[in-house]
């Protein structure tokens, strides 16, 4: 029983970071209609630069700030250099462009720092002991950061002008333009926001999953799975989906032979897409004609 609880709690911890990745993906889909294949690389950048900086002796808080800012800058750059110039491009072309961006980011990181995985200690050493469960404090850090970020995004979307403008574009780009909202600026904002979320998720994960330039793929896929479980363009669903696959992965790691941990998540992605492509957590959305 305690063992089960242990797996569920650590799963929720990692799941919280997947929730952030998935949230970024869902927000971009909602505002721009594009599936961003570079999202996992934003996470990789956050994690890798944090591990490198902290490893080089930079104060962890400063390292985290620089890493998150770096991920955000890359997110903004992807939008400005790759998405924005593709005027008149359909979603298919834009999605392939994000695939290109992902390849370039990953390849540049590889060339810059090599394939080695970088280890970094937990933010705060120690464990939480509770009902026979030993939960490393790092998981609480992740959960706390995710809770703050999700709340922040929710407040942004519901309480601020920028958030309302984003939602307006998501609902009806043509009408938004009529009231003076530029879908293009919102696209920039949402890419930057998604990179921020990815970067924070990456920093939080760094002590748990020693990052290398190639983890972006696996992390991105977990984000996709989280978003798809929630319905791909449903931010709240993506958060729930992230937690769900975190728990699933925790259980798989506990009870299945190692090596199948990732296959379980990818299998879930395929299973959901084949049976309920519009998500487990919502009913179908109707396209405007």
């Amino acid at each position: 029983m305690a063992e089960l609880l242990q797996h569920v709690l650590t799963g929720l911890g990692t799941g919280a970071s997947y929730a952030l990745v998935g949230l970024g993906i869902a927000l971009i889909v909602q505002v721009t209609g594009v599936i961003n294949f570079a999202q996992g690389d934003f996470v990789m950048l956050g994690a890798l630069s944090f591990a490198l900086l902290a490893g080089a002796g930079v104060h962890p808080v400063l390292a985290a700030a620089i890493s998150v800012a770096g991920a955000m800058a890359v997110g903004a750059l992807v939008n400005l250099a790759v998405i924005a110039p593709a005027r008149g491009a359909d979603h298919t072309r834009l999605i392939i462009l994000t695939i290109g961006a992902s390849i370039v980011i990953q390849g540049t990181a590889l060339v810059a720092v090599g394939t080695k995985a970088r280890f970094t200690p937990d933010f705060t050493p120690g464990e939480l002991r509770l009902a026979g469960v030993n939960l490393p404090l790092q998981y609480l850090w992740i959960g706390g950061a995710a809770a703050v970020m999700v709340t922040g995004v929710w407040l942004l979307l519901t309480r601020t002008l920028l958030g309302r403008a984003m939602r307006a574009v998501a609902m009806d780009p043509a009408a938004s333009r009529l009231v003076g909202i530029s879908p293009r600026r919102m696209s920039f904002a949402v890419f930057t926001l998604a990179a921020l979320l990815g970067g924070i998720g990456g920093v939080m994960l760094a002590p748990i999953q020693a990052p290398d330039p190639q983890i972006g793929l696996a992390l991105g896929l977990k984000g996709f799975t989280a978003a798809v479980v929630g319905g791909l363009d449903n931010p709240a669903g993506a958060v729930a989906g992230g937690l769900l696959i975190g728990v699933l992965e925790g259980l798989a790691a506990g009870y299945l032979p190692s090596g199948y941990k990732d296959a379980i998540v990818y299998g879930l992605l395929i299973a959901v897409l084949l049976t309920r492509p519009t998500g487990l957590l919502r009913t179908i959305a109707v396209a405007r004609v």
Partner: peptide, 22 residues
Amino acid sequence: RAEAAARQRVATDPDAAADPGL
């Protein structure tokens, strides 16, 4: 009036023209 405004935007905002709907 709304339509005219939209058209005005399409004519001046290249971003707007990118949207097939408009």
